[in-house]
Amino acid sequence: MGIAIAHLAALNKCTVALYDINDEVIRRALEGIRVSLAHTVNDTTFTKDDLQLALERIKKRTQLADLDTCDIIIEAAMEDLRVKKDLFKKLDTITHYTTRLVTTTSSLSITAIASATKKPERVAGMRFFEPVLSRDLIEIVTGINTSDETTDALRAAAGKLGKRTIVSRDTPGFVVNRIQSQFFGEALRLLESGAASAAAIDRIVQLQGGFESGPFRQIDTMGVDVHFEESYSLFERMFTDPRYRPHDIERRMSDAGHRGKKTKKGFYNY
């Protein structure tokens, strides 16, 4: 996610510092961005010179302290509250108080992450959607202490990245995952109870409903195990409200190694 955001920022003429403790990880990330950008080079809208300029906008950083001049720092570490809180605590000490500290979490509490800082009003969430380059939305998530100034600054930043924004309060699942939980949940319940096959449900949802993609294709793409973990986490954070109950079929499939596209077998074979 971090690499895709750096890619997006560079394409939109923003100078971006790409940070990782491992120099090799950054080198590979930059190579990936270069290869991806090279595919889009043409004679008019994105020339070789544009490619070079975009790559020059991405600065390699392996020391956290080197991020002290950034206006916005976007964290995209693993979905582990302890890891994120530790990172935000460090960022809180090395950055100016006007720097906005942003997490890309899709499942953790912004307020909990912000609690690791002394100025939680400058902390918020920015949820990007896959594929980051083409999805036209960023969900800005405000914690209990997030200031209006921080929200406004993030709206402006998203605008520079060419994205629309919506603002969500810091509640489990925010907006998109919360509503998607019903899209997937009801489809899984129908499948589990034998109402229709995964392929039939996907076809109905796409062709009759006009959705971009059916629920089971989507789960296979994100990973059956990943979706199950996300569903379980939402269920727990909603204090086991039955509306968010995860489905055993996903757990059994994960246990069997049928985890979607990445294992070449999920609700479909690949």
Partner: peptide
């Protein structure tokens, strides 16, 4: 915002 989110973010 909910409508925008689901159209732009989830197709």
């Amino acid at each position: 915002d909910i409508d925008t989110a689901m159209k732009a973010g989830a197709g």
